[in-house]
């Protein structure tokens, strides 16, 4: 089984992807990029699930990934609808423009 990639590698990759996604969410002001970064984070989590499932030889990881995919799809559709509304209201895609909820 030496040709198999060690689970640690996959988890490290997932962690790096997750961190990249998170950084994107935090530093980007454009809401489209934030959505993309969110997708990256979701996929990072999915990668971690698959890797863990492969490591233990259990199907649960893949099942969870399917769930994540479905959620992500739903999330993107809602997210894009919000993006459209945001653009309609503020004529910009800058997320900081929508800060009317501040205390």
């Amino acid at each position: 089984m030496t040709d198999q990639i060690p689970a640690e590698y996959a988890l490290v990759l997932a962690a790096i992807l997750f961190a990249l996604g998170l950084a994107g969410v935090l530093v980007r002001r454009n809401i489209l990029f934030i959505l993309i970064s969110l997708e990256i984070m979701l996929n990072a989590a999915g990668l971690a699930l698959i890797a863990a499932g492969a490591r233990w030889g259990e199907p649960d990881g893949q099942i969870m990934f399917l769930l994540v995919l479905a959620t992500a799809g739903a999330e993107v559709s809602v997210g894009l609808a919000l993006v459209l509304q945001l653009y309609k209201q503020f004529r910009t895609l800058d997320i900081d423009a929508a800060s009317r909820m501040k205390g």
């Binding site: 998170l22 969410v25 935090l26 530093v27 980007r28 002001r29 934030i34 997320i95 900081d96 929508a98 800060s99 009317r100 909820m101 501040k102 205390g103």
Partner: peptide
């Protein structure tokens, strides 16, 4: 003090959660 943290900026909230 606490309400001043409530900026309405999603990214700050996300940073806080992270």
């Amino acid at each position: 003090v606490f309400s001043s943290t409530e900026t309405g900026r999603v990214r700050l909230y996300a940073a806080g959660i992270a």
